[in-house]
Computed example of a mutant assay.
Amino acid sequence: TAARALGLRAYAAAHTPDGRRRLAATLGDPAAAVTVSGLLTGTEGPGRDGDGALALDLLAVVDAPQLDVESGAVLVESLADGSRLVLSGDPGVLGSAGAGQVFADVLAARACPQPASRTPDPGPIGELVSGIGIGELNQVAAPGKEVVIVPVRDAGEAVHRTVQLVADSVPRAIGVPVPDIQVITPGHGGLAGTRALNTALKERLNPGPGRFGGFDPGDRAAYTPEPGRTVPGTVVSADADGLHLDCAGTPVVVPKDRVEASVRHGWALTAHQAAALRWPAVVVVLPGDAAGGLNRPWIYTAFGRGERHLSVVHGVDQALPHAVAEVPGPQRTTRLRTLLRPAAVRDDTP
């Protein structure tokens, strides 16, 4: 906003249509908010100048940990000499599903200024997530049921309690409607993975024959237009052109021959799929068979997706505090950090 007031061609980019919508509301200027993919393909934003560079002076990318090395390279190559790039994000969240760790490498190389301005989310959820970020799983006071722990004995009970929370308990007790509740679980497979949970949630929330490639109007959907990028939406209809989705107010048509490979039901997502997204209420499912795969970034990301309410369907016993305190997450090996360090050294030379 300040840059635009100075007459600069400034834009802010998110990774999803929902992120773009939130940016537009924050900026008070829908024209200034774009998605990274829309900016690069030319369907959003200022377009390109005569030399093929993006016609802008300043670009701020939010949720920058989700920027993989391929998208990051294309983005940087698309900027004209003299333009400015700001990468903004929480280094504690899960990184991109695609290759590389652009944001982490830029931070580690200290190749550019790094002002720290993170303000924790308010309330019990913010207090809980902030503690997780430094390796502490604290019990927090939640007088308004902002945080609820639901113990379960096995995966079957985890699925049952999750459906109960989404369909009844959270809407009734917290006042968050079903469309604003998201389920997050560690993986797609298993007795309480996204496939099992989505099957159970569809049966309860939107039963139907699945006549459009397994989908019915009203189904929650998770669309993957390209590897590593998930866009939540709702099924509207289907016709000869393909499956019609509403993705945060943006109409999307998935061609019939791509539906099976690129669209899943979306009541339940993995934390990687949910990393750049937020919802009023989130139900995190931790079945017993997930205990060995938990780590601090996963828990930090999953628990931090809820704005007003977090329910944890808890079947991993002491594996949860152990993962928060002792398992910092797998390290990725890339060359970007090494390549950036010479530039950082040159910048520091008197």
Rank of each mutant, 00 (worst) to 15 (best):
R172N: 04
I134A: 13
T334M: 09
A167P: 08
A60M: 08
P177D: 15
R21Q: 13
L79N: 03
L94M: 11
P255Q: 05
A111N: 13
P225A: 07
A268F: 00
A64G: 03
S96N: 07
D57Q: 03
R264I: 00
A55K: 09
D246E: 12
H265G: 01
V284K: 05
A55P: 00
A248T: 05
A64V: 02
A60L: 10
A60T: 07
V69L: 12
H244F: 02
G175M: 10
R4L: 15
A2M: 05
G156A: 12
I132A: 12
V282I: 08
L79G: 04
P287W: 08
R229F: 07
F103M: 07
D246S: 12
A109C: 14
L336K: 04
T199M: 03
G306Y: 08
G315T: 08
R48E: 12
F212G: 00
H265M: 02
G98L: 02
L6G: 15
G249L: 08
G95V: 00
V61C: 11
I149Q: 15
T1R: 12
L320C: 02
D68V: 04
E157D: 11
G293C: 01
P151Q: 14
A14T: 02
V140T: 12
Q182Y: 02
L137V: 07
V86T: 03
G315D: 05
V61I: 14
A142D: 10
L277I: 12
V283D: 04
L40W: 10
Q318P: 09
A275K: 14
V147Q: 09
Y300L: 15
I181A: 11
V252A: 01
V61Q: 11
L79H: 03
P186M: 09
C247R: 03
T199D: 13
R308T: 13
E77A: 14
V129I: 04
P120E: 06
A276H: 11
R211N: 02
D168P: 00
P217I: 03
S237V: 06
G82N: 09
T349I: 07
P207R: 02
A275N: 06
P280C: 03
A12N: 08
L79D: 05
A343W: 06
A200C: 08
G126C: 11
T194M: 06
I134T: 15
